[in-house]
Design a protein around this nucleic acid. Structure first.
Lengths: 374, 374
DNA sequence: ATTGTGTCTGAATCTGTCT
DNA sequence: AAGACAGATTCAGACACAA
């Protein structure tokens, strides 16, 4: 039983660290299915092992030029395939990935995501409120970048904090276009000479929205192209664990300094608006058992178009239909489904009150019970 | 020298017609290097599973047409490769192409464009002001679609009417994100039963911006997925030649009827500005783009002493003067300046209405947009 | 005539849990 | 693995009609 295996030994998960080296090799050394979210801002097209560099200024003819383009795209596609494959291995079955790119590379990224079986959930447009103009007036101002959000598979139960994002958006659901300023001013990390430390540092507001919206506190967030560590900084603030991978020592140093400065927000600040789905399920039968409604009592639909009688087992009967509060409501309305809790009302002192009030009372009691240390 | 060739005989270019048949076959029968611009809205390959209901239990009328069904990514890629290849052959060396898609297909479109040697100039985001919400709260509201603008080759001298688009945008460079409403109301073509004639009809404002910005009057614009003929209708209004290809007889009939109604704008209205513009807040061009005023329509000064005509790029022409609503007003009055918004009026049912009314409408919409920090 | 209210609809990969 | 069933879930705009 102590037979050695050929499988490379998986290291323990190195949380809240910046790992040095090529991200593909490093990711292959980490334990599989251990990460909740990956955020990746890969290089656009250049700086890849020299293969992608164009001959400097040499005007090649059209045929050679097309061939050169093809070889460049092929090399970039190979690189994309390899790092995405290594990233995929690290994701938990219900994990998800965000990638960001511009028109130079994002179509190759998106196609390869689909080829590997990732399931695209949204493409998101980061609309820059202050983009660089097109100086020569030969094209449109390139005022946005594209993010792709994808789960590991079509069947994955990905994390999506719908209510939190809705709250961030003043009560209407968050759209796929996000207007955010680019990273400038004191948020922009500087090197020793006072110049920008990294050419493409992303704004923390962008990562904030990604991490609040698609992870839970305590989740592990990995960034294979860590740069100056925006992903790690925001993850730390928000009470998530991070893993960074970065090849360049200079960037790692900047990121280390930055992360040392970051403080986690208060626990209260990290609480977000939860979804109703997360609340404990209350069987309608409990309402009857507790005497909040008596068997034989009449319930009324919205608008009082229909009536039904409560039975002792927590089912309803009305118009020859018997079944759950949901089933009877759906049948009477001729609808595919119905939320009986909001559909049915009872009468007290001449007023119609939705039965959901009773469920809320029960839930409040349940909470009071569990809050008390026993 | 009269040897017969195996090459299929190239027909003459059939201008301002809707050609019936499969777009790949039809395109292969047309003479090569004969088209200035291609606008293509190919099937998106949506992969919808069951039915979807709104929270009020009404059913969403989804795109489930046979023409949108593909068995696999490989099949879709093959289709994309073939029609893009046929389209590429038709383009003049300095021609360009626009394609539009959603996250389901646009990454494959973009990658194949690059593979074939097209040179991407911009990706453009159409931000819908009124998208369908996400009814189940499981994802972000899918509030945009993506267009890709590419020239036939890196070396191509593509058409870009920088100043016209700048004028449409009230004097600042046109950006890569365009906020436009979806096609509804009277603009939406209906079938005999009064239902939408086509599930994915695009708004004319979108084509207006594409055609004004990247073609010249007299250019040939081809649409291989013609549908209800939005591309042809806008091309005709703007004094461009069009070629439509459509497989479905029902769509062709709708498009024929529609095109018969369309009138070309005046020649003056089609001239675009070649000079710099001024700055206020709501671009008058938006009034034109959105169809609130039509190019060629006459505006009247206070007291009706002067008249001027609206042009397609949101400038005016009157008494040999061309320029913004403010500039033309100032010139006619011999005044140092003029608020064109209150100076100019349009006629509706015999009444004179200041164009500022239209600005207020747009502002109301913009406020609805920006009131929410999304 | 104007304003307010209710209805309808739009390129959508739209549920979770227990048996 | 498939089926049963609870029950959660919507924004903007056009239009018809009422007050």
């Amino acid at each position: 039983m102590t037979k050695t295996t050929t499988k490379p030994k998986a290291a323990a998960l190195p949380l809240n660290q910046i790992l040095a080296g090529d991200c593909i090799e490093v990711m292959r050394s980490l334990p599989e299915a251990s990460v909740d979210l990956i955020f990746a801002d890969p290089p656009y097209n250049l700086q890849l092992k020299g293969e992608l560099h164009r001959p400097d200024n040499s005007r090649v003819d059209a045929v050679d030029d097309a061939w050169d383009q093809f070889s460049s795209f092929a090399a970039y596609d190979r690189f994309t395939r390899d790092w995405l494959d290594a990233a995929r291995r690290l994701l938990k079955p219900n994990g998800a990935i965000w990638v960001i790119g511009s028109y130079h590379n994002v179509f190759r990224l998106g196609a390869e995501l689909q080829n590997q079986g990732f399931w695209i959930l949204n493409d998101v447009v980061w609309r820059k409120s202050n983009p660089m103009p097109n100086f020569r007036g030969k094209r449109l101002t390139n005022a946005h970048e594209t993010l792709i959000w994808a789960s590991k598979s079509e069947a994955a139960k990905y994390t999506f904090n719908y209510e939190a994002l809705k709250a961030l958006n003043e009560g209407v659901q968050m759209r796929s276009d996000w207007v955010l300023p680019i990273c400038t001013g004191h948020e922009r990390e500087k090197d020793a000479a006072g110049d920008k430390a990294h050419p493409t540092q992303k704004p923390e507001s962008l990562l904030h929205r990604v991490i609040v919206g698609t992870t839970n506190p305590g989740d592990v967030v990995l960034d294979p192209f860590f740069g100056t560590g925006t992903t790690g900084a925001v993850a730390k603030m928000l009470g998530r664990e991070f893993i960074g991978i970065e090849r360049e020592a200079a960037y790692r140093e900047v990121a280390e300094r930055r992360l040392a400065r970051v403080r986690k927000f208060d626990r209260e600040a990290l609480e977000i608006t939860g979804s109703k789905r997360a609340e404990p399920r209350v069987p309608f039968g409990q309402v009857v058992e507790r005497g909040m409604l008596r068997p034989g009592e009449e319930l009324f639909s919205i608008g009082s178009r229909f009536k039904a009688k409560v039975r002792a087992d927590g089912t309803l009967v009305g118009n020859d239909v018997k079944g759950s509060i949901h089933q009877v409501g759906a049948h009477l309305e001729g609808a595919p489904s119905c939320n009986g809790w909001t559909y049915w009302h009872f009468k007290r002192e001449g007023k119609m009150i939705p039965i959901d009030i009773l469920r809320q009372q029960i839930r409040a009691e349940m909470e009071a019970d569990t809050a008390r240390p026993n």
